[in-house]
Amino acid sequence: MVSLTRSGDRTLEEKEALLGYALIAPSLLLIAAVILYPVLYNIYLSFTAVPLSPAESPEWIGLQHYQDLLGSGQFWSALWTTVVFTFFSTTLATLGGLGAALLFNRKFRGRRFARGLVLLPYVAPLISIAFVWRFMLDPLYGIVPYVGSDVLGLYGGDIDLLSNDRTALWSVIFVDAWRYFPFAFLMLIARVQAIPSDMYEAAKIDGASRFAQFKDITLAELKYILATVFLLRWIWNFNKFADIWLLTRQVETLPVYAYTVAFANYQHGQAAAISMVLFLALIGFVLVYVAWILDW
């Protein structure tokens, strides 16, 4: 690739190119070794039975793991839980972010400071967030069950919101939306502020109602950024593991399912197949979404 002239000198372009390769090489080597290789290895593992002892090599069993998955009720239920969790936590976080962005579009004293405060759930460490919510949802002394059941009487007491079958998923969805709405807020606020105010002025003069202004100006202007925020959050929520796992063991999404199969049952080959299905389902969703909704 590098041609040396007779005197051994290189041209300036060649030197630049060489330096370019030299500077990017460490990044590329690391990514190839610690991301690309594991991803390819994961594909291989999903077709094998992985023995417990690392000294023995995996045994090729073809599509067995995938066939087992398709016939397993636990797998389909985990897939459904993943879709429900992802859809509602993503929608709630996006709507929450939109609401906050519209509120903060208005000038008020202390706006900059308040904006920093709104980002706190997203900035604080996950472990702290998970445990403060577990404390607040604690069935004996938690403040949420106290207010919800003793004060407001919304439901009969004695329900552990995080371990009850029917409420665990919704509690996790709510906490996740609470933690990640600041992301949507950050993405949207800049775009909201960029909508020219004369558009609203003009609409007002033309007699458009508040709702019409919101629908025809705000939403129309924010359509693409909203769709992008939704897609990004969808991707991340679909793969979510720690946020769910640290709150409760009752919500089994595909990542949680893969984790327990791998590290509680030690079936690494089966777990590799689950994570492959997770990945393919996500890619499938992204392609359909981009083609049909974003219309790129």
Partner: peptide, 15 residues
């Protein structure tokens, strides 16, 4: 960036 932690966790453990 598309590859999630959960996709990498089994092979990374082996590595």
């Amino acid at each position: 960036y598309m590859f999630s932690g959960i996709l990498l966790v089994v092979p990374m453990f082996q590595v």
